[in-house]
């Protein structure tokens, strides 16, 4: 079972990974966007977005989604940062998971954009990665983790 960081703890993944060839994913399995769009019952569903797939098609059913995975095939493609923020700003409350080839030095930024779970391609040292989540304790700009910019909080 794959491990990941969620809410600052290392846990086992309880979701079944995405299978792009499967026509009807089971309950508890992560769907591609196409599979998810074909689901008759979206309650408790899990969906994975790739770069180039904006979260807009999910907006009408965000409250039914339990897990939104945003995949990073390469860590330098930053589209997923905006997708995450967009989904949270449209009211998504479920687990928002980054998966793929992002690196631990991006964790604070990912967390700020609304991710609360991190499934790293290299999960050999998740404890070390946890320390990177605490790189910054103060921020200038508003984001999901701190909706007020510093200028509204300065004292």
């Amino acid at each position: 079972m794959r491990r990941l960081i969620k809410h600052g703890n290392i846990i086992d993944d309880t979701w079944q990974p995405l299978d792009p060839d499967c026509s009807v994913p089971e309950h508890g399995q992560i769907c591609s966007l196409e599979q998810w769009q074909d689901l008759a019952d979206k309650e408790g569903s899990a969906v994975q977005l790739e770069p180039g797939q904006e979260p807009t098609p999910l907006f009408d059913a965000l409250e039914k989604i339990d897990l939104l995975v945003i995949n990073f095939p390469v860590f330098t493609d930053g589209r997923g940062f905006s997708y995450a923020r967009d989904a949270r700003e449209h009211g998504y409350q479920g687990e928002l998971r980054a998966s793929g080839h992002f690196i631990r030095d991006q964790l604070t930024y990912l967390q700020r954009c609304g991710f609360d779970a991190f499934q790293m391609a290299d999960d050999s040292d998740l404890n070390a990665a946890l320390t990177s989540l605490r790189d910054f304790t103060e921020h200038y700009q508003a984001a999901i983790d701190q909706p007020l910019p510093l200028f509204r909080r300065r004292s």
Binding site: G78, R85, Q106, C113, H139, Q141, A143, P149, L150
Partner: peptide, 13 residues
Amino acid sequence: RQWSTLHPEFAFL
């Protein structure tokens, strides 16, 4: 400057 410094969303443009 303050807004753009370490902006979490726009570090991998």
